[in-house]
Amino acid sequence: MANPQHPSVSHVIADLQRHGLHPEVTWFDDATTTAAAAAEALGIYVGQIANSLVFTLDEEPILVLTSGAHRVDTDWLGPHLGGTIGRASKDVVKAATGQVIGGVAPVGHPHPVRTFVDTALRGYSEVWAAAGHPKTVFPTTYEQMLTITAGTPTAVRP
């Protein structure tokens, strides 16, 4: 698909460029609603997909970038982070990130969002994350992800 203009994607690209990164954003013809679908479309392992999940930690929005190979254990992660984790509503996601569920990128948000990066992602030389729209992804590395998000490396399950 040609690279259409979208404000959220433009914010992501600008944020990446501020960090000296210039990855090519891939646009899919259809939204890839699961990590498995995105991995299949890219021809990569599902674990290389960095799912961007917005939760609340004691009512504060947080972003958890987790490997597509497993799910976040919120009952374990909340106490590990010193609080209680809840699912963020679509309104909280949009307010915190400026993006919609399914397209939340690690960057490009109106304000910094406290971010935790799944340590399982460090096992891959390349990971792919949403680029601000449900039909977009971009390649990066685990180390770059930590840098661009000021994220904390964190296991997301025991």
Rank of each mutant, 00 (worst) to 15 (best):
A2V: 13
A2T: 14
H6C: 05
P7N: 10
S8T: 14
V9A: 13
V9K: 12
V9Y: 10
V12D: 04
D15L: 07
Q17R: 15
H19V: 08
G20A: 11
G20I: 11
L21D: 13
H22D: 06
H22W: 04
V25R: 04
T26F: 07
T26I: 13
W27P: 03
W27S: 00
W27H: 06
D30V: 14
T32A: 14
T32F: 00
T32D: 04
T33Q: 04
A35V: 04
A35G: 13
A35M: 05
A35S: 15
A38W: 02
E40S: 14
E40L: 07
E40R: 11
A41I: 01
G43C: 05
Y45G: 10
Y45L: 09
V46K: 14
V46R: 15
V46W: 12
V46C: 13
G47W: 07
G47T: 10
I49Q: 08
S52N: 13
S52D: 03
L53C: 10
L53M: 15
V54E: 11
V54M: 09
F55E: 12
T56F: 04
L57R: 03
L57T: 02
E60M: 11
I62C: 02
V64L: 12
L65N: 05
L65H: 08
G68R: 01
G68V: 01
H70Y: 01
H70D: 11
R71E: 06
V72C: 11
V72L: 05
V72H: 01
D73P: 01
T74A: 12
G78T: 07
G78A: 10
G83E: 04
T84D: 08
I85N: 00
I85Y: 08
R87A: 12
R87G: 02
A88S: 09
D91Y: 05
V92R: 14
V93D: 09
A96L: 07
G98W: 09
Q99H: 10
G102N: 10
V104P: 07
A105L: 01
A105Q: 06
G108W: 08
H109L: 01
H109G: 04
P110H: 05
P110T: 05
P110S: 06
H111C: 03
P112L: 07
P112A: 09
T115N: 14
T115Q: 14
F116G: 06
V117G: 03
T119R: 07
Y124G: 07
E126H: 14
V127N: 11
W128A: 05
W128Q: 01
W128R: 06
A131Y: 15
A131N: 12
H133E: 10
P134D: 07
P134T: 12
P134H: 11
V137T: 05
T140V: 08
T141W: 02
Y142M: 09
Y142R: 11
Q144V: 06
L146D: 12
I148A: 00
T149P: 11
A150L: 10
A150N: 14
G151F: 03
G151Q: 04
T152S: 13
T152D: 13
T152E: 15
P153S: 03
P153Q: 05
T154G: 09
A155Y: 01
V156M: 13
V156C: 04
